[in-house]
Amino acid sequence: MQEIQKSEHKKACANCGAELKFKPGSHQLNCEYCGYEEFIEQSKSSFEELELEHYLRVVGENAYTETIELLHCKNCGANQHVEENYKSLDCVYCGEPLIIEDIQKEGWILPGALIPFQLDVKKARSIFKTWVGGLWFAPNKLKRAALHPEGLHGLYIPYWTFDSNLFASYQGQRGDYYYEKQRYRTKNGMQTRQVRKTRWTSASGTVNGFVDDILINASEKKRRDIPSAIARWNLKELVSFDSKYLSGFVTEKYTVSLKEGHHQSFQEAKNIAYNWIRRDIGGDTQRIANADIKLSNETFKHILLPVYISAYRYNGKEYHFYINGQMGTVSGSRPYSFWKIFFLVLFIIAVISLIAIFAK
C-alpha cells in the first residue's frame, strides 16, 4: 500500500497571512498572493548518516521519529496527508476524490535529506505539453489533458541510500584472447580464416573500497513504477531535510521497509564487487568462481527526490507520465488513437491505389 503525506509544518505569510509555499529552484518560501518571500535557513552541518546495525538490531525496522496523518484512497490504495486548509483533494495517482473520514495516523523515520524541486509546475507543464505534442498517434484527449492546470502534481518520492566499506576475496580465471589460422573448405577450394580463442589462467586476490549512496526506491513497485529514464539524480545537490521544502507538494511515505531496502542494496553492492573483481583480474574476459563479499561500517539515509506526475485514463486503462523535478527528463506509458492509425492506413492505401492507377 502506498502512503503519501503533505507537509504539516505550514508557515503563514508575514505580509498577508496566506500560506507560504516552497519556490522551486530556490531556497525560499513564496506567497502566491502578495509575492512576499522568505529564505529557508540552511543547516551548517551536513545531513546525518544513520548507523544501519543500530536501526535493524536495536531500534527495529518499525522505528519512527514522527507521526503523520494519512488519507486513504479507496480506488488505488494510496494514502495522502491533507493540509488543514484544503477544500477538496484528489488522489495524486488516480485522480479519485479523497474522503476526510478516512484519516489515519502512522509513524515514519524522518527523512535526513532531500533534493528540492528545481522546476516549478509551469515549466513542468510546458515540458509535458512538448513531449505529448511529439507523440505520434496520441489521442486528442491526451493532448488536452496536457494543458489541464490540475493534471500535473509535484511529488517527493522516498528512497533509501546505503553506504559501506566493501571487502571481497575471490578465485577465478583470467582470459586472454589469441588468434589461430584455420583452413576450411568452400565451393572455390580451401580458404583460411582467423579464429579467436581464449587462453585461461588462474586468478585470485582481494578488492576493497568505499561504496557511496546505493540508491533504493522505497516505494512499493506494483502499479506505479518510476521509469528508469527519469530515475537519475545528482545526489550532490542533496540538502538537509527541512519540512518547508515540502510546502505545496505531496510527499510519499516509504512502503519498502529498511530491512528490505538493505537486502536490495546488498545485491547492488554485489554487482559493484564483481565489477571491481573483473577489473582486478584484467585480461580480455574473466570468470569468477566464487567471491566472499563483506560489508562493514554500514550507514543509511532516508531521502526524498522530486517528480512531477500526471495520471490519465483512456479506454478504461490508466496511464502515468513522469517528469524528473530536478533534471526535467520526461517518460511514461502512452495510449494510441485507434482512429488516427486507422485513417492513416486508409490514406496510405488510397495513395498506393492512385499511384497504381496512374502508372498503367
Rank of each mutant, 00 (worst) to 15 (best):
Q2T: 07
H9N: 15
H9R: 10
H9Y: 15
C13K: 04
C13V: 03
N15G: 07
E19M: 13
E19C: 11
E19S: 13
E19Q: 13
K21N: 09
G25I: 05
C34L: 07
G35I: 03
E38D: 13
I40T: 01
S45I: 09
E48L: 15
E49P: 04
L50P: 00
E51A: 12
E51T: 12
E51N: 13
L52S: 00
E53R: 09
H54C: 12
Y55R: 12
Y55H: 09
L56I: 05
V58R: 15
V59R: 15
Y64N: 04
H72K: 13
K74D: 11
A78T: 06
A78N: 14
V82W: 11
Y86Q: 10
S88T: 11
V92Y: 09
V92E: 06
Y93L: 08
Y93P: 00
G95M: 05
G95K: 04
G95Y: 03
E101C: 09
E101W: 06
D102C: 00
Q118F: 14
L119E: 02
L119P: 01
V121T: 10
K123S: 09
S126K: 14
T130N: 14
T130R: 15
W131D: 06
W131G: 03
V132L: 09
G134L: 13
L135I: 12
A146E: 02
G151H: 05
L152F: 09
H153Y: 09
Y156V: 05
P158W: 02
T161I: 12
F162P: 02
F162C: 10
S164H: 09
N165T: 10
Y170V: 03
Q171Y: 11
Q173M: 08
Y178G: 01
E180A: 08
Q182P: 04
R185T: 08
N188F: 12
G189M: 07
M190A: 10
Q191F: 06
R193F: 06
V195I: 11
R196C: 06
T198F: 10
S202P: 08
S204Q: 10
G209A: 07
N217R: 12
N217P: 11
S219E: 15
S219T: 11
K221M: 13
K222P: 07
R223D: 14
S228L: 13
W233A: 02
L235S: 03
E237D: 14
E237C: 12
D242I: 00
D242Y: 01
L246D: 00
T251I: 05
Y254R: 09
S257K: 04
E260V: 03
H262Q: 11
S265F: 10
Q267A: 15
Q267P: 09
E268R: 10
I272F: 13
W276P: 05
R279W: 14
D280S: 15
D280P: 02
G283D: 05
T285G: 08
Q286A: 14
A289W: 14
N290G: 11
A291F: 00
I293V: 10
I293E: 05
S296L: 04
N297I: 07
I303K: 02
L304H: 01
Y308R: 03
A311R: 02
Y312I: 06
Y314I: 05
N315M: 13
Y322L: 03
G325V: 04
V330T: 05
S331M: 07
G332W: 05
S333N: 13
Y336N: 12
Y336R: 15
K340F: 00
F343R: 07
L346T: 03
A350P: 07
I352Q: 15
S353P: 08
A356R: 15
I357S: 10
F358T: 07
A359P: 01
